[in-house]
């Protein structure tokens, strides 16, 4: 048996392009998904009742269905309603909606762990409800759940491999393409695996570094 990794690495522009797509999809989905989660967690814990129920239904719907079905519905299903999305946009949408649901539940747990006394202190300092949520409740909640949130973001990044199924040209799409050209499946998937491994470790470190600096203090 002889291995030929060079023939895989020779395709580096394709791999690099794939990795760039994976990073881009993940970055956008994290940005939108986290925003969605903050709004969702607010609605679930402090918003008006009906809105809370609506968000609850959304969370349950997404958490109890496969990601690939969500993705296919957006890409293949929505055109029936006249909503035609490119593979890239459909992928970002699916990942955002998916992350938003899981992160809503994660964040809600952190929000509900806020000691009552801190909210009372903020109330007695005449802060408004919105100010209390954004400045007193949210930052410590983010700090509490940050490890869980980072894990979820990494899971969504790895899950983006599924988006190759609607021909989004991310890392696993590139890997598939290479092995279908030179039939070096073993080497191709090892390189692809190492690519994801590297990206996941990098992403984890980046988020663990950025969270305390920009979101919730030391």
């Amino acid at each position: 048996m002889s291995f030929d990794f060079l023939s895989i690495l020779a395709q580096w522009p394709l791999l690099l392009r794939g990795a760039a797509w994976t990073i881009g999809l993940t970055a956008l989905a994290t940005l939108f998904g986290a925003t969605l989660a903050v709004a969702g967690a607010w609605a679930r814990s402090q918003g008006p009742r009906p809105l809370g129920w609506l968000v609850g239904a959304y969370v349950e719907l997404i958490r109890n269905t496969p990601f690939i079905v969500q993705l296919f519905f957006i890409f293949f299903g929505l055109p029936e309603l006249g909503i035609r999305l490119s593979p890239g946009v459909a992928s970002v949408c699916a990942m955002t909606i998916n992350l938003g649901a899981y992160a809503t539940e994660i964040l809600r747990a952190g929000i509900e762990a806020t000691p009552r006394g801190q909210i009372e202190a903020a109330q007695s300092l005449a802060l408004s409800r919105t100010q209390i949520f954004l400045h007193v409740v949210l930052p410590p909640a983010l700090k509490t759940v940050w490890p869980a949130l980072v894990s979820q973001i990494v899971i969504v990044m790895l899950g983006s491999a599924v988006c190759s199924q609607i021909s989004t040209e991310e890392l696993s799409y590139a890997t598939n393409l290479i092995q279908s050209r030179n039939f070096r499946a073993f080497e191709a998937y090892i390189v692809g695996t190492l690519g994801y491994l590297g990206l996941a470790i990098l992403l984890r470190h980046l988020l663990n570094w950025a969270g305390p600096r920009f979101l919730f203090g030391r």
Partner: peptide
């Protein structure tokens, strides 16, 4: 109406200075 509590209730994610400045800044 200022209030001081038995359990202090400082905001744990803010420095001492930020704790004092938060409400005057926002309100």
């Amino acid at each position: 109406v200022g209030m001081i509590f038995q359990s202090f209730n400082l905001f744990p994610h803010l420095t001492v200075g930020q704790n004092v400045m938060l409400a005057p800044h926002l309100v």
